[in-house]
Design a protein around this nucleic acid. Structure first.
Lengths: 211, 211
DNA sequence: CAGCCACAGTAACATTTGTCACACGGGCAA
DNA sequence: TTGCCCGTGTGACAAATGTTACTGTGGCTG
């Protein structure tokens, strides 16, 4: 069994052996460097990507280049949107940027439709992905619709801490502002207030969560 | 062929004959009156609903009972979320309220999983539904993330006009405010400005679109 | 070391949105 | 007719957020 097969099996433990074989036979391994944009709004989707390693950021782009974070993709996950574009030429509604260097498997769209019918484990993976992403997006809507910026910031920090499984968040205020679609000054202001409330300690390029 | 079969065939023209037969054999026709809430956040989903007639409003509920409109369901459509809950006991993340008296077919969840495998036309319907709803929700995010209330109001009015295919919108400012999660006064203010710009004519309980 | 740059803090102000208070008028019911 | 309720219009103010401008500080580099 090849190195890559092992990684694939470990990262997607629910895939059947036959499915793994099909993937190996029909798809290509790819890697991307941090900062690369691997899918952009308006582009045609021609393949879907299974993440083996690294981290992707999926966000919505505003007309003036604003970003709005939707969610992060971790190893063992795939982009929900690219899973469901059927055979028609569908353009992407989102942008995907590499946060940490990525290794991934790229699968041609044409195959996916077939696999849905022939591979139960693929079908379940797609359904599961779609459902969880939909829920995540609903939560995003809740946040921007019902919550003020201070709560959203708290939520954002907690989510981040959970994702990297540590209490230190290495981001500048500017980067956070971009993802919440606000301005650096607002983030600074709110973080300072959180520090006064004893929720965080602030350092240069680092926020230490105390909650 | 029964009356109901005909309605079903007309409303879902892409369903195969075998699928229609299965639906008839395994599901129940139901009707709901305007104002009824037929699915509520936190409830277990035990069936999905195919809309034959009337209109449903799908929205997200805030903690204090605020509403936030996601989209409307028209005849020929189904709630995306209820389509993908697999067999597990999944609770609803949204609330569905009847806008116009509804006639619908209720399908037990257990069957849907089987149909996905056995009925190509059902599979395509589910995928299509999921994709279009996801896109719609992305558009909602765009609106609240990137646009101010005046633009959101314009967008809302246009969408409404398109849905009922006429230029007169019979809603009070209060109702609109609820769906955009703002206050009546704000809606009044913005509508007045739109009137001054020549975009609408305002009447009691009616907004006439001029764009 | 000097200069530069990215990051952070903050004051002052503008704008948008939410809230409160109240007035007006149409239509319906007693 | 009278009174009342609902929908609407509007002014005044409060609060949140966005914007501008300026300061300080640490670290890197020439």
């Amino acid at each position: 069994m090849s190195e890559e097969t092992i990684v694939l099996k470990n990262t997607f433990p629910n895939f059947s052996n036959e499915l793994i074989q099909e993937i190996e036979a029909n798809s290509s391994f790819q890697s991307f460097k941090a900062g690369e944009v691997i899918m952009r709004t308006g582009q045609y989707i021609k393949s879907t990507i299974l993440l083996l390693k690294g981290q992707l950021k999926i966000y919505r782009e505003g007309e003036d280049g604003e970003e709005f974070l939707m969610y992060y993709l971790q190893p063992g996950q795939a982009c929900a949107i690219s899973l469901i574009c059927s055979t028609k030429n569908q353009t992407s509604q989102i942008t995907a940027k590499v946060v940490e260097d990525v290794e991934a498997v790229s699968i041609p769209i044409a195959l996916m439709d077939k696999w849905m019918m022939n591979h139960r484990s693929w079908y379940e993976f797609v359904i599961y992905t779609y459902r969880t992403r939909f829920e995540e997006v609903l939560e995003v809507i809740d946040n921007i619709a019902f919550r003020a910026m201070d709560e959203r910031l708290e939520f954002y920090l907690k989510r981040h801490a959970k994702a990297c499984d540590c209490k230190e968040i290495n981001l500048s205020h500017q980067e956070i502002a971009l993802e919440l679609n606000t301005s650096r000054e607002v983030v600074s202001r709110l973080l300072k207030k959180m520090e006064q409330r004893g929720l965080v300690n602030l350092h240069r390029n680092q926020i230490e969560l105390l909650m």
